[in-house]
Design a protein around this nucleic acid. Structure first.
Lengths: 187, 187
DNA sequence: TGATATACATGATGATGGTCATGTTTAGAG
DNA sequence: CTCTAAACATGACCATCATCATGTATATCA
């Protein structure tokens, strides 16, 4: 059984898409190579024709997820309001790869950490553009501080087994960011 | 070979201490039962005399770490300044169990999530006490928002493979929290 | 159209690690 | 002083996976 060149490209795309979804939903460790391939409509054996190892898949998947074009430029507090929604919390597999995977990335191979670090850099730059602060230094501070709060709050909200506390963390963090931003701008 | 009652209590304590350190340093998955026992000065076989399973160990360890008495009450921004230090970043095994383990706890057994959720509740209450805000609602908002930012920033700083970016995340988040708190109080 | 390279399927291999079975020694009770 | 229960050591078991070996069919090129 062989397959056309374009079919192969398509297969690789499907593998990365399945990996992106599964990794975000269940973490790197819990997802098996065989499972990714099954989700992509293939069997496990063909995997090593596309990637050198599972580590390679992880790094490549992160690199793809992280350079994904964000919507358009938005005001920082608008972005935070959309980010910190119950819908996002309840859909990790389709949501922000940072909230789902930063923590595990700490112990991944250097290539994976490099991809995630690059994603962090870009996100800070993007958010700083959306923070209308007094100067660019204040904008960068607001971007870093509120991005950390967004990701931290999303992780808290997903971890909590108490739905009320989970909702409250999202709502209060939204309010906290909205309130803190003008303060940064006024300085 | 038998062992005195107090020796057994001591052994259990050592197992939990080793587990706390290893889990924080390397995560739940990467640490083996045999390794925890070795660190505690025992062999793997005795483990099941103390805990029903590895999941049980995880939940018990989290419960212990989470009720650990925090230093004294401090002002929120002082707490943040100590929390967001390079020393803390570089010592995950001896540091905050939340920053090291929240994210993985999402996929752990219900008992583990319950323990971590309880820890989150307590920490929010503690920090709200330290936030001298206008009213208790504002204090709670500051506590949640800045706790999310602290944990998110610590995770970012540990993940980054770029030391400058890592340091910047800590410093800017410290500054962001210090700046945001009086704003919350003034409101 | 025929030859060949290759993408993928099937199945095996080897390592890892959670858990259990069994044995031994001694703390603690009578 | 005995007897027994239990805490721990040793060693095995079994499932899970990542990875590799081999086979097969077909896309591509001459």
């Amino acid at each position: 059984m062989n397959v056309s060149r374009e079919q192969m490209v398509e297969n690789r795309r499907r593998i990365l898409e399945a990996a992106g979804r599964l990794f975000r939903a269940r973490g790197f460790e819990a997802v098996t190579v065989a499972e990714v391939m099954r989700e992509a409509g293939l069997t496990h054996g063909g995997f090593y024709g596309h990637f050198r190892s599972k580590d390679d898949l992880i790094a490549t998947t992160l690199a793809e997820l992280v350079v994904a074009p964000e919507p358009e430029l938005t005001a920082l507090s608008d972005y935070a309001a959309r980010y910190l929604s119950p819908g996002h919390r309840d859909n990790p597999g389709g949501g922000c790869p940072v909230a789902a995977l930063v923590s595990e990335t700490i112990r991944q191979a250097p290539e994976a950490r490099a991809a995630m670090t690059e994603g962090l850099r870009r996100q800070i730059a993007r958010l700083a553009d959306g923070a209308d602060a007094a100067d660019s230094e204040a904008a960068r501070q607001a971007a870093i501080g509120s991005w950390a709060a967004m990701v931290g709050a999303m992780i808290f909200a997903r971890m909590s087994d108490d739905p009320d506390l989970s909702d409250e963390v999202l709502a209060q963090t939204r309010a906290w960011i909205a309130r803190a931003i003008p303060a940064g701008a006024a300085e």
